[in-house]
Design a protein around this nucleic acid. Structure first.
Lengths: 184, 184
DNA sequence: TGCAGCATGTAATTTGTTACATGATTAA
DNA sequence: TTAATCATGTAACAAATTACATGCTGCA
C-alpha cells in the first residue's frame, strides 16, 4: 500500500482535491502514514491516467482551477484488492532510538534534549488528536477511531516509558571510545 | 541519520564485516531501523571512501575475502556530530493502520486476518528480543537495553490495544460504498 | 540431495522528499 | 505589512528495496 492507494481510499467518502487530501493527511493520518504535495499530486494524476479516479475541474477566480477527484467503479475494485492483503506491514524508522542506542557516546545534556524533544512531539500529537471528534455522528469511518486510539495508546506508552527509564541513560557517564571492547 | 551513520555507530564497539552488521540489524536493531545488504555494503564502501572507516581484507578459503571494517578517528568525530541532533525523528509507516482505517470496506474475516497477522509479528519480535541478554556483563551498551525496553513496551501496548478494541472493527458490518456521505 | 549459512557485491527500480515556481485573498 | 491559507504542480535529488550474480562448506 502506497500513497496512491491511500488517496484512493480517502476518495471513497466523497470527491476531494489534492489540497483537501493533504489537510486530511495532516489531521489524523499523518502520524502513521505521512505524505506531502510532492507525492499526493503525482499520485492523483497517475490514478486518473489509470481510470481509477475521475477529475472535474472547477474554475476559480484568482486561483488555479480546483480539481475535484472522485473514485470510479474500477477504482473501488482496485481498492478492495489492495485492502485484501492479510499481512500489511508496520514499519518504524526511528532516528530517535538509533541515537539513544549510542547514548554512551553522548553527554547527559544531549540525552536530555533528545528525550525532551520526543516528549514534546508526542504531546503535540496528543493535543492534535484530542480535538477531533470520531464519534458516531461524525464524518469519520469506524476505522478512524480505532486507528486514532491506537496512536494515542502508543503515544502514552512512549511518554510513560521515557519517564520511567530515562535514568537508565542519563546515569551512565559518557564513555570513552577508547575503552570499547567489541560486541560481536 | 541514515544507514551509513548507524553502521559507523556499530563499528565503535570493534571491527566488523558487512555480514556481521547485517546480523546485528536482524538481532535487535531491525525493529526500529531496518537495513539489508543492498544498503549496508554500499554504506561501508562510501564510509571507506570518505576515510571514516578503514578496511582490512582477510583472505579465506572457498569464500570471498572477509572485509573487516574499523572506525577511524575522523569517523568518531563524524559520528559524534551526527549524534548531536537534538530532535531526531521517529517515523511510522503503517500499512496495517492504513488498511484498518478503511475497515468499513472489508469483511469481518479480512479484518480478523489482518489483526491476527500483526499479533503474530509482534509475538515473534517479543520472542526474539527475550532471548537477548542486555545485562551489565553483556557486550551491549546501556542504550541497547533502553531501546529494547522501548520496543517491548510498544509491542505489549499494541497487543493489548488490539485485544481490547478489535470488537470496534469487527462488529461494524461491512458498509456499501454507495452509502458514503463525504467526510471533508 | 538439498538447504541453510557464510560472504561479497551491483544495477535497476521504486518511492518519497525537498526545493522551486506562481499568485490571489484575508485576517492580524 | 506580513503571514497564513488557498491551490496547483514539476524537477532534481536522496535513499532504500529488490532482484540478480557467484560459489564454497557443512549438516540432515
Amino acid at each position: 500500500m502506497d500513497v496512491k492507494t491511500v488517496c484512493l481510499g480517502m476518495l471513497t467518502r466523497g470527491p476531494a482535491s489534492g489540497y483537501d487530501l493533504k489537510k486530511f493527511f495532516e489531521s489524523s493520518f499523518g502520524h502513521f502514514f505521512a505524505a506531502g504535495y510532492g507525492s499526493i499530486y503525482p499520485a492523483l494524476s497517475s490514478l486518473a491516467e489509470q481510470g481509477l479516479v475521475r477529475c472535474e475541474e472547477i474554475p476559480q477566480e484568482g486561483k488555479p482551477d480546483r480539481k475535484l477527484y472522485s473514485i470510479t467503479e474500477q477504482g473501488q475494485n482496485e481498492l478492495k484488492s489492495a485492502l485484501d492483503n492479510p499481512c500489511p506491514g508496520h514499519k518504524v524508522r526511528s532516528e530517535f532510538l538509533a541515537t539513544l542506542f549510542f547514548a554512551h557516546l553522548m553527554s547527559p545534556e544531549q540525552i536530555d534534549r533528545v528525550l525532551d524533544s520526543r516528549i514534546k512531539e508526542v504531546d503535540d500529537f496528543l493535543k492534535l488528536i484530542a480535538d477531533i471528534d470520531f464519534g458516531e455522528g461524525s464524518c469519520w469511518p469506524p476505522g478512524a477511531s480505532f486507528v486514532a486510539g491506537f496512536g494515542i495508546a502508543m503515544a502514552k506508552t512512549c511518554k510513560q516509558y521515557v519517564d520511567e527509564n530515562r535514568h537508565l541513560l542519563v546515569d551512565t557517564v559518557a564513555e570513552e571510545l577508547d575503552s570499547a571492547q567489541g560486541w560481536r
